[in-house]
Simulated scan of single mutants.
Amino acid sequence: MNRFAALEAFVRVAETQSFSEAARRLRSSKSAISRNVSALESELGARLLNRTTRSLNLTEAGRAYFERVSRILADLDDADRALGQLQASPRGRLQVSAPMSFGFLHLAPAMPEFLARFPEVDVDLSLNDRFVDVVDEGFDVALRIGALPDSSLMARRIAPIRRTLCASPDYFRRRGTPQTPEDLKAHECLRNSNVARTQEWRFVDENGKPSLVAVSGRVSANNGDALRIFALSGFGVASLPTFIVGADLRSGALVSALDRFVPQDLAMNAVYPHSRHLSPKVRAFVDFLVARFGKRYWDPDDGRP
């Protein structure tokens, strides 16, 4: 058994969940890939894959083995390319995951500039508000807003994300402008069902002490753009990032409230798999994001840092 070929076959099958796709990527035959994986399982004395006519999944042992072996192969690949890669121009397919609203409003409009600057890079952009598994799903870079869980991923801060509590001028004329977070209990609150505590909003007092306020309302949605539409229509108060409502605040279509109570502790980060030598396409893309979005051009000009 060619140990390297067997390890590579196993990793590609695990990544693609397909013997056929693994064979295509390795420019081999499906039968050869199957033989290599079977030989590896025999040598290890453990089943790495559960195979049925409809699915192919890693066993518990297979997942643990895959995590170690994929890193080893990545390191070997890095070692082969290291010297040339450091000087190489960005090229190849770049798979990017981003939150739906930010991706549609800001990232997608910026991509033509990136593509024009790096003509040898192809971009596959996936917009989704779910928490993607960067490694298992094959992404090169993912943009994430909020606290980052502990992981083996590398991360780079792209920009602070400012939140604001806002409603239409007409809504505040009819219902009154809240002066304290507790006042929201008497308001129609537009809630984001994509967050863990959709019926509790977090605030800080003037001493920086955090608190949770129970809120209620007839509308909840799993997307900030939808909540913006309800706010613009005068239906209630929304808690949204300024990258969604910055233009509305500047134009006066929406008005902010309780600014001093809204914590500003969020950031957007680019996360990507750990690599000894960051690929030129990923490095170029992350540098581009910092230059493009680091100054938060979407924020209203209200004197905030």
Rank of each mutant, 00 (worst) to 15 (best):
V262H: 15
S220G: 09
F243P: 03
I229R: 10
G234F: 01
R260V: 08
G224V: 00
A257F: 09
V245M: 10
A238K: 07
V255W: 00
V219D: 06
D248K: 10
S251L: 10
L240K: 00
F235W: 06
R228Y: 01
G236D: 05
I229M: 11
A231F: 02
S239V: 14
A247Q: 08
R260E: 13
F235E: 15
G246I: 00
R260S: 11
F230H: 06
L240N: 04
F261A: 11
R228Q: 10
A226S: 12
P241F: 05
T242N: 10
A247P: 15
R228K: 14
T242Q: 08
S256T: 08
S256M: 00
N223D: 15
L258D: 02
N222H: 06
F235I: 13
D225P: 08
N222A: 15
A231L: 07
L254C: 02
S256A: 04
L249F: 05
L258G: 00
S239F: 12
I229D: 11
F235C: 15
G252M: 15
S233D: 07
S251A: 11
L240A: 07
L232M: 03
L240T: 02
G252Q: 09
G236V: 00
D225M: 15
G234N: 07
V219G: 01
L227H: 11
L227K: 13
A253T: 12
G234M: 12
L254F: 07
S239N: 13
I244E: 14
V219H: 11
I229A: 12
G246E: 00
P241A: 09
G246H: 02
G234Q: 12
G236C: 00
G236Y: 01
G236T: 00
S256H: 03
A231T: 03
G246P: 04
F261V: 10
A221M: 13
P241R: 03
V219K: 10
A253K: 11
D225I: 14
A247Y: 10
V262C: 07
T242C: 08
L227V: 02
V255I: 09
R218A: 12
L258I: 01
V237C: 05
S256I: 02
F235Q: 12
L249K: 02
V245S: 03
P263K: 00
S251Y: 09
P263M: 01
A247W: 06
V255M: 11
R250A: 11
I244F: 06
G224Y: 09
D259I: 05
S220P: 12
S256Y: 02
V262K: 09
L227A: 06
D248R: 12
V245E: 11
V219W: 08
F235N: 15
S233F: 06
G224C: 03
F235A: 11
D225L: 11
R228I: 01
L254K: 00
V245K: 06
L258Y: 01
L258V: 01
I244G: 08
P263T: 03
S251W: 04
L249V: 07
V255K: 10
S239K: 13
F230R: 07
V237E: 09
A253E: 08
